[in-house]
Design a protein around this nucleic acid. Sequence first.
RNA 1: CCAGCGGUGACCGAACGGUUAGGUGACAGUCUGUAAAACUGUUUUGAGCAGGUUCGACUCCUGCCCGCUGGACCA
Length: 362
Amino acid sequence: MTIEEKMKLITRNCQEVLTEEDLKALIESGKPINHYIGFEISGMVHLGTGLMSMGKIADFIKAGVKCKIFLADFHTFLNNKLGGKWEDIRWASEHYFKEALIASLKCYGLTGSEVEFVSGDELYKTHPEHWQNFMEIGKQVTLSRNLRSISIMGKKLGTDVNMATLFYPPLQVADIVTMDINLAHAGMDQRKAHVIAREAIKKIPGNHATPVAIHQNLIAGLTAPNVDNKDEESLKMSKSKPNSAVFIHDTPDEIRDKIKKAYGPPKETEFNPLLNWVKTLVFWGDEVGEFKIERPEKFGGNITYTKYADVVADYASEKLYPTDLKNALSEWLIEKLAPARAHFEIPEHKEALEKMKGLLGI
RNA sequence: CCAGCGGUGACCGAACGGUUAGGUGACAGUCUGUAAAACUGUUUUGAGCAGGUUCGACUCCUGCCCGCUGGACCA
């Protein structure tokens, strides 16, 4: 594989690379590329994590990157998710979340064994230097900078921010140092922490690599955006809005039902979750691909799109009606997620999913 | 530790010693070949906790808990 091919594989379907030059230099250096992506154990795994993030990992694996998934149990604990109960978080991390990520990787033809899973609990116990790294990073970040980066967790500043919350950003950056990461991967919501990482890690002792940061856009939620606030924030998928998110293990009927209820304005190609999903999930950010629409003759008959631009053009001119797009997208997802559903048919995992729902009060 | 103010249903947020605030969100229906918008309906009588006064307390009193603001401290 040429350098250019690797670059393309690593960066496709991403919104931002900090920086492309650094990434190119890293690839050219021939050194092992140590990737990581971290997840809070805060709820069920939706498409943003299961398809966007895990699909990207499939790309990385193909490019020869060493991938690591960090199960951020302590971050979850600090952030008071899952009731802030340590035992529940640890259980969910190993028995639900990790399995859901493996299930997601299966949707991309992997088995899960290509990736290394590490929990915070394990990392901190086996790396005593982490405490030192945490303090070193803390010394490089001002309070106001730290506070600004905390909005990554969707917190309203000035309300109930407690001390533990302030530990979050430096802890996240210290993770990168301790795991010796040179390719940090996340959604755009994590960019502030990664920018701090790039700046702060340079300044601490030890000649640590400045990590390349690679960010994917957040996929749109299915519910309607706030009418007078059509911005990224109101569009993004959220675990806390059940109808805005499709989960990796949703049944075919749940998938059809959620997509049927999705916001689907005719002709509107800008703020449109359906097209957003077709673009980033079906076409995986590429211009070309394949997307089949099945519909009755009276509505135009079946059609297979091979270019994303054609989908957009037909949608804008109403040659492609929202309902037909919804049906096609539902069926595409149902098929794509089949391996994940199969994984959760295994009794052990099925049981874990039920218990997880219990913890979440669903 | 001291003082002032505050703690209302998923969220925001009023009034009042005795009757359903209201809004948002969510859910259902009508309308559109989808959804949204609009309209209609539904959403466990809820009051930080424990007592007390009263025929009756979310509303008054006492104690406690939690939060905010200020003071004290400046090691």
